[in-house]
Design a protein around this nucleic acid. Structure first.
Lengths: 205, 205
DNA sequence: TCCTGACTTTTTTAACAAAACTATCAAAAA
DNA sequence: TTTTTGATAGTTTTGTTAAAAAAGTCAGGA
C-alpha cells in the first residue's frame, strides 16, 4: 500500500515536471495531452489515470510552483532585523520567482484563453499568505516601537502590494500591456526597491 | 472667410458632441458613421467632409476631453500651500474626470479592438503634462524646505503615478481586469488618498 | 493496480458566402 | 465656391459548414 502510493507519487511528479516544461514553453492552449504523454513515452490514457483532466493537471503544476514560492517566503521572512529588510526580501524573492518562471507567467495572462477558472484560487491563496506574512512583520515592528502604530496592518500591506504591482516601465502605451516584458524586469525591480524605501519612511516616526 | 470658418467650427463641434455621446454609450467599434450621421440628421458623406475618417473623429473627441482635463489641472495645481494638497487635488480631479466619463474609458481598454493607434499619443501627452505639473510642485516644495531634496523629481512622480495606478480593490482575480468597475471607484479613490498620505510622509524630513 | 489502443465527443480551424460598414465621388443645392 | 447628398466601390465583420485536431472514455490486457 505504502510502496504503491510512493510509486504513484513519483510518477505524478514526473508527469508534473514534463507538463511544467510544456506549459512553460508553449502555454496552456498550445500544449496537448498527446505531447505530454509523448514526452514521457506513455499513453495519453495514462495521464487521465493520474489526473482527471487537462485543467487539473495545469492547476497541479501551478500549485507546486506556488508552494515552493511560499515555502521560501515563510522560511525566511521572520529572520530579519527590521521591516524594510523583510519587505525587500519579499520583492527580491518575488522577482527571482518571476524571472525563473517568466514564460509560464507570460502565458498566464489575459491573452491566454481557456485557462481553468480555478487558478485564481491559487493566486488568491498566495496573495493571502503574503498578506499575512507581511502584516505580521508590520505588527512585530510596531511592538518593537520602530514605526507608528496603525489600526489595520493588513490594509497597509494590501495598499503596498497593489502599489508595487502597479510599477511599470517605459511609455504609457507600453504600460497598458498586462504582463511586463522580460527585459524590463530588472528596471521594475529597482523602482520597487525605491518605492519600498519611500513607503517605509512614510510609516516611521 | 471668418464667418465661414465660424460656421464650420460650430458644425464640427456639433459632430464632436454627437460622436462623444455615441462613443460614450457604445464604444468605438459599436458606433457606426451612419448612426452618428443619423443623430445629426445629416448624410454620412458630410461627416467625411468634416473629418477624414472614423479614427480621426474619435481622436478629436478624445483630444477635447484631454484638453478640458489638463486645463483644469494647470489652472489650479500651483495654487496650493503644500505638496500634499497639490497631489490630492490631482487625484481628486482625476477621479472626477473618470467618474463623469466612465463609459468612455470603460470602452477605452484592451478589450476594445480596432482602436486607432494614435490615441496613445494623447494618453502619453496627458501623462507628460501631469508629470511636469507634479514635478514642479515637488521642486517648489524642496525650495520651500518642506521636504528632502531629491536628485530627480520626475522619477519620484513617475513612481507615484504608477503606484496610484496600481491601486485596485477586491479579490486578486477581480484585480486582473484592466479597468475598474464603477462601483469600486470610490474605494479606489480612498485608498489612493491613503497612499498619497504615506508617500508624502516618506518624502519629508 | 497500472497501463494501452481504439473509440466517441468536443473544440478548433479553414474556407467561403452574406451582411455590414467604411470610404469615395460625381453631381446637386445653397 | 462651399456645403450637401445618393449611389456605389472596397473592405471588414459575421455566420455557416465541413474537415481536422484535440480532449476525454472505455473495455480489456499485463
Amino acid at each position: 500500500m505504502a510502496a504503491g502510493n510512493d510509486h504513484q507519487d513519483i510518477k505524478r511528479e514526473k508527469i508534473l515536471d514534463a507538463s511544467h516544461q510544456r506549459f512553460l514553453h508553449y502555454g496552456y492552449s498550445k500544449t496537448t495531452m498527446n505531447e505530454i504523454a509523448g514526452d514521457l513515452s506513455m499513453s495519453k490514457a495514462l495521464l487521465y489515470y493520474y489526473f482527471p483532466d487537462k485543467s487539473q493537471l495545469y492547476i497541479a503544476v501551478m500549485r507546486k510552483l506556488a508552494n515552493d514560492y511560499l515555502k521560501n517566503l515563510e522560511d525566511n521572512i521572520d529572520t530579519f532585523a527590521n521591516l524594510k529588510d523583510a519587505f525587500v526580501f519579499q520583492i527580491n524573492t518575488n522577482h527571482d520567482f518571476i524571472v525563473s518562471n517568466y514564460n509560464f507567467f507570460d502565458f498566464f495572462r489575459l491573452n491566454e484563453q481557456n485557462l481553468p477558472d480555478t487558478i485564481w484560487e491559487i493566486v488568491e491563496q498566495v496573495h493571502l499568505a503574503e498578506l499575512n506574512l507581511l502584516s505580521r512583520a508590520i505588527k512585530t515592528e510596531i511592538e518593537r516601537g520602530a514605526i507608528k502604530p496603525v489600526e489595520n496592518p493588513e490594509e497597509i500591506v494590501d495598499l503596498l502590494l497593489d502599489a508595487l504591482h502597479g510599477i511599470k516601465v517605459g511609455a504609457v502605451s507600453q504600460k497598458k500591456v498586462s504582463f511586463p516584458r522580460k527585459e524590463h524586469l530588472e528596471e521594475i525591480h529597482a523602482k520597487r526597491l525605491l518605492l519600498i524605501d519611500i513607503f517605509i519612511k512614510g510609516l516611521m516616526y
